[in-house]
């Protein structure tokens, strides 16, 4: 498993937008010439990616909202963000 430090602050780079897709429903992450549908927990993660909150804060927050263990959530959050980083949709 990859390890992102507690203090890592994920953010959306210039040219990437996260928003609701009112016409089709759900949420989308938009970059140049690409659009990803985002659903479920992923929506909650990206809503918290504001360029200020650290991974630790995001995980702690999600743990409260979903009444789950931080240790359980954390690997999923990291995997999701790393995947998006590899697609140049998130900066870590």
């Amino acid at each position: 498993m990859s390890d992102l430090g507690d203090d890592t602050v994920p953010k959306l780079p210039h040219g990437v937008k996260f928003r609701e897709d009112k016409a089709r429903g759900g949420y989308i992450l938009v970059g140049p010439e690409r659009i990803y549908n985002i659903d479920g927990v992923s929506v909650e993660i990206l809503k918290r990616v504001d360029g200020a909150a650290s991974i630790q804060r995001i995980v702690a927050d999600l743990a409260t909202v979903f009444t789950a263990e931080e240790a359980v959530i954390r690997p999923d959050v990291e995997a999701f963000l790393i995947d998006l980083r590899d697609k140049q949709m998130v900066v870590l």
Binding site: L29, Y36, N37, D39, D76
Partner: peptide, 19 residues
Amino acid sequence: MSETLLDERPQANAKPKPQ
């Protein structure tokens, strides 16, 4: 955590209501 690339999905049927 599913993602689909909307951009590559062709329209499926003959005459559905257009997306």
